[in-house]
Design a protein around this nucleic acid. Structure first.
Lengths: 143, 143
DNA sequence: GCAATGTTTATGATATATCATAAAAAATTT
DNA sequence: AAATTTTTTATGATATATCATAAACATTGC
């Protein structure tokens, strides 16, 4: 019954992937969540983003990002140095330890993606991606 | 950068849909979450499922379902009557109030789906669904 | 320079996700 | 029947999602 509903399949696909991916990371003894990994990846590229900008990049909201940053900092994967020109903000830098963890996780992520997409052609992936983007676009609030 | 990753698009599509759908339900003044709605819908069809079976239906885990059932019961949308033949379980029935809420939400859900899928043909939806199911299938744990 | 406005971060409240485990009850084995 | 195993539910711990709001700070307009 629910199987015939597209959004159920959508939810199931991403959650299946997440469970599988997280299980593989855990099994490798790496202490990081997929979401934390994503945030660190973004911060590796840009260390001058506001929480709101980070949130946009990873499609989360600012409150979630704030809590993830606090956690990542507590874990020593991220360093937050106050910015001289703005008393509210900090410069966020991935630490050595964070770097090592990212490096260790990277091949696993590639593996997970390959496994999830096994038997699906490049053309099919392109079609899929394009449809997903159209759906996301349709759901953007207008006002 | 992240935009080129399929799983990011996947995550974004379902989260965009959920935000839009929940916002519409909230705006209508209906006090229910999409997840709660889903569980109630399942219970409407079958009132003799274990928490584990419900979890399978809605693709959540038993712990999440347990908490949702407790909440739904507290809210008066669900009644839980002890089963005589099994001291652990209860018969879960959607209450009158739950029924009314489901009835009120239903047209909104149809609206939300239509909006999310605007401009996407039936054939495209079929392709999409089939690909999503293949991905979910690839992620199923083997052992 | 001050008031009003906007931005940025932090956090409270509530809900869900996930793993792990405890506790109770049922089913099975011997 | 008693012991063992399995099933079912509840809950602790931790992480994330979301909305709302507070607090600190920066910026703009006057």
């Amino acid at each position: 019954m629910l199987n015939s509903i597209l959004f159920y399949s959508l939810d199931k696909a991403i959650r299946s992937y997440r469970r599988m991916a997280q299980a593989n990371i855990d099994r490798a003894g790496l202490a990081i969540t997929i979401d934390q990994w994503l945030v660190l990846r973004v911060l590796l590229e840009h260390d001058d983003l506001t929480q709101h900008e980070i949130a946009e990049q990873v499609f989360k909201d600012q409150a979630s990002v704030a809590r993830m940053l606090a956690l990542l900092t507590k874990r020593g994967l991220l360093s937050a140095v106050p910015l001289p020109n703005d008393g509210r903000r900090t410069k966020l830098r991935v630490t050595e330890q964070g770097q090592h963890l990212l490096d260790a996780v990277h091949p696993l992520i590639l593996n997970n993606r390959a496994r999830a997409l096994a038997g699906i052609s490049v053309e099919e992936i392109a079609v899929l991606q394009q449809l997903l983007e159209r759906i996301a676009g349709n759901c953007v609030p207008t006002d």
